[in-house]
Amino acid sequence: MNAIKMNGIKLSSRHVLLHQSFTQASDSGPVHLYQQFSDDKINILFLSAAFFDKKKHIVCCVEPDPFDSVKELDRLKSPRQEHLDCIHSAGILSVYPHQFRLKSLGCLLYFFGVEKYKFYHLASSPSMVSFTIDYKDQEAIAASLASHIDLPRSHTPYRQEVNMDEFIKYFKKEPETAAAYVEEKIKTYAIQTRANAMLFRFDIRTDLLCEWGGHIQRLEDLGMRFHYASSFVSQEGLVRLFIALESEAPVSEKSKQHVFSDIFPKELIPYCHFMASSDIISFHGPHFGDRYGIAAHTFSAMRHRSVPVLLIGCVGSSITMVVPAGMSQKAKEALSDFFETP
């Protein structure tokens, strides 16, 4: 298998990973939690949620302090929440740019499968695929991944840390990261929408992850690319992988369920589920990855205009949502109520 060309691997500091799950239809649980984060000025560094399965999942990574305290976690529990799992030592490994290529996504899944490294969740932005992993494994995974993908010669995994001393040498006054944005409405650089994607769910046994990674790569040869991907682990230990696909050739409503019949082995077909025709909306703003309140604003915006969100991911400085087909314009209007849009 040819190595896929990528530009970089980014690692995070240690985070606390919170995983909530619900079975009730109400979305008040996540809104409660994320409003609480916003009120407490707590930044969310990664978020991924699925709201349309029987069991709804919402996962986020936050700075360890103050969540290392059990008392603090108890305070976050909402009445409707069924589960709040917590991993105290998680990291985020991001790879970029994927260029919406299924070969990139498939290659990453193949890597985790063949090297038997564990990841908890994945979610994508328009440029990155991010995985939540055990913090202690970050360096080993990054080193191993670097030998599976084609990176620039000079590449070293990048940790999101700033060397202020070096910076101040060139900039004698206050450094730019001291800047605090004071905005009436939160600014966005761009809101992009894409209509009529096909949202699929693949139920993947972890021991077959490398095989699935290979099949997903081959989808690109059929003229397909992905616009959003995320995954959660089911109670049975299956990786539930959601991919919003776009095909160069039009696919009729009837044949969407069978789109993989010619590529995937027969025994895997029962694990491919066409979920819905959907629209993708993604937006990106200044330092979104370093600021609190962005997720809460997004949830509020969607609730305010009653836009059902099927999937949402906050990765890097972007937010991507999958909404039912035909809803992207309404979602865009909803965002305009709460964010400054270009």
């Binding site: 006054k173 206050e174 730019e176 001291a178 800047a179 944005y181 004071v182 600014k187």
Partner: peptide, 17 residues
């Protein structure tokens, strides 16, 4: 690309700089 704007209040970075 640098942080100097009306919206940014806590930096002393100026156009001149």
């Amino acid at each position: 690309l640098t942080a100097v704007a009306d919206a940014v209040q806590t930096t002393s970075y100026t156009h001149h700089d």
